[in-house]
Computed example of a mutant assay.
Amino acid sequence: MSAPTGVVDEALVWLNDPLTWTEPGGVLELTGEHLAMTAIAVAVASAVAIPVGAWLGHSGRGAGLVVWLTNASRAMPTLGIILLLAAGGLFGNSAAVIAAAFFAVPVLLVNTYEGVRGADPDARDAARGMGMSGGRILLQVELPLATTLVAAGLRTTIVQVVATIPLAALVGGGGLGQIIALGMGTQRYGEVLAGGVVVAVLCLAIDMVLAIGQRLATPAPLRVSAR
């Protein structure tokens, strides 16, 4: 029992050291880099997945493609993608962001597809009866009705990417994974534990903020309907 206790004590000492947080390359600086990488990966994934998912849901086509992409992403772990990119000569933050974006696309694609596809048929028919074009129906009727599912997909995706970005440290990237990688390399396992705790707390904090944002982004009538 002494070894685990020693690791916990070492982690607590590390976390309570002000220099750990404020020095160059400390927790605060690495957290900023971590969040920047997350934002880029989610933005890239959203730019691809949301328009494609919305179009597929509107047209009623591509259900097989959505299922295939989802299964393919689960079969290809993010670490495997990062290592493949590194083998191709792409290291650091770029490799991690690309891999995280690839990992994020299926969740956003499926949620957008299901949200648009499941839009109220009566609202869709009423829009057609008013002479609205397919594009206007998608933008002004179906997507607003899909807001809840799209927001849920974004929330899940962001938290997953935040938890995945630490893998960047394995190929020379930045972010909070550097703390874990450095601790492993120097056999300071208390630092490894502390780095894991920081990442976990960051994920929980972001999920809490996004839960509030998801509720605010959901139109009031849909909130009432959900209850």
Results as ranks from 00 to 15, higher is better:
V52G: 06
A39L: 15
M76K: 00
P106Y: 00
V42C: 14
L143T: 10
A11N: 10
L145R: 12
T147N: 03
W55R: 12
G183V: 03
G131H: 04
D122Q: 14
G32V: 14
V44M: 11
G195M: 11
V199L: 07
R117V: 06
L170N: 02
E10C: 10
S94L: 11
L35P: 03
A86F: 06
P106D: 01
T78M: 07
G32Q: 06
A101P: 02
M208C: 08
S225N: 09
A63F: 03
E29R: 12
E142V: 08
G115T: 07
W14Y: 15
A151T: 09
A75E: 01
A163R: 09
L83N: 00
Y189A: 10
L12M: 11
A43S: 13
G174M: 11
A87K: 01
E29W: 14
P51M: 11
T70M: 12
S46N: 04
A87G: 10
V162F: 15
V199N: 04
A168P: 05
G57W: 11
L149V: 07
A47K: 08
L193V: 08
V27D: 04
G172I: 02
A119P: 04
V224C: 06
T38L: 02
Y189R: 06
L182Y: 13
P106C: 01
V209C: 10
D120L: 03
N71Y: 04
P106G: 02
A169R: 09
I180Y: 08
M184V: 08
V105T: 07
N16Y: 15
L202K: 02
A217S: 09
G6Q: 12
D125G: 06
V209M: 09
G196S: 09
P77F: 01
G60P: 05
D17W: 14
V197H: 03
R74L: 11
L15K: 13
V192C: 09
R128Y: 05
D17I: 12
Q178R: 14
G185P: 05
S133R: 15
A39H: 01
A96D: 00
L108T: 06
T164I: 07
G213H: 05
G183I: 02
A96E: 00
L56T: 08
E23K: 15
L90N: 00
L30D: 05
D120K: 07
E142I: 08
P144Q: 08
T147Y: 09
A3V: 13
V27K: 09
S2Y: 13
A95D: 00
V150H: 03
A146I: 07
A217P: 03
I158L: 13
L149I: 06
I206D: 06
L12N: 05
G80V: 02
V52Y: 07
G135F: 14
R124M: 12
A181E: 11
G213I: 14
A11S: 12
A41T: 03
A151I: 05
M37D: 04
L79G: 00
A220H: 10
I165C: 01
G57R: 10
R227P: 02
G62E: 04
G80E: 00
A47I: 11
I179K: 12
V224N: 10
P221Y: 14
